[in-house]
Amino acid sequence: MTATAPVAERRRAIEGAPAAPGDLQDGRRRRKWLSLRRRRCLWGLAFVSPWLIGTGGLVLYPMALSLYYSFTNYDIVSSYQFVGLANYGGLLRDPQFRQALGNTFYLVVVMVPLSLVVALGYALLLNVPVYGQRVFRTVLYLPQMVPTVASAILWMWVLNPQFGLVNTILGWFHILGPLWLNSISWSKPSIVLLNVWGIGGAAIIFLAGLQGISPMLVDAAKVDGAGLWRRFRHVTLPALSPLILFNAVMGVLGAMQYFTQAFIMGGGESGGSSVGLGNSLQFAVVYLYEVAFGDLRVGYASAMGWVLFMMMLVVIAVLLRVSARWVFYEGWRKQ
């Protein structure tokens, strides 16, 4: 028997053609095996089909549609024409879009690293075996349980310049608190503050990573005389680096699509026209929402979506490139 025979046989079985007469003897047995294989194929396909249909209908098709719209002046109500690259050109010249991008990158540059540092700090603290460890873990995760809308409203009140919690406490130390959301320069830090408060999820991911570090590694470093800092720098950080990258990527994706809280705290749709004082809370997706669902400029909004997507890809590519230097993959279980 040649090596290629099973392949031909398999193909024949899949295509439903009868086996060549010469093979008949053990062909039946083999065909049964083959049809088993084929059956598995069908089962596999059947099991994943809901997701395949969903991905086709709710991801790939909309993406194609979006790309198509981005070259048109589609506005939902009237008929539309191709406008070539006009939408993309318009974005380049759109001062509001530029400002929205600037605000968004503020989140990427300030909020994402700060969140990583705080989450890492939480995880390190939670990893110390102290009495009531579980209670602390629960407490630090708790803000994640507040619905986005509720947390936005809560923080609007917490940050109230005159009667809010934060400025009251600052007042104890004779610090005159800022105007927070009512100030152009403090509105984005307000958003950052709120998000750092709810950083429990990332902390839990780091904590799981910390608990995966072999104690032998730490002990070995101790025996070698490494102090607390050097153990952190040369054992803990490298071991956590894949998770740091993961959280960083997730953080960037989240920051670049930041919407709900900004939309509510900035006054959004309802509280009048303001998107924060002086448009200081006009983030990219907030602007996209207004263009798409306020002005119904679907074509323009689609182009904006693609530009944002490309920017995310660039930022993440940069992250991955930079991370190649410091992410340490050993001990990272691969299948």
Partner: peptide, 10 residues
């Protein structure tokens, strides 16, 4: 962010 608007249209 890419699929938000076309999904709405669909």
């Amino acid at each position: 962010v890419v699929t938000l608007v076309p999904t709405y249209v669909i």
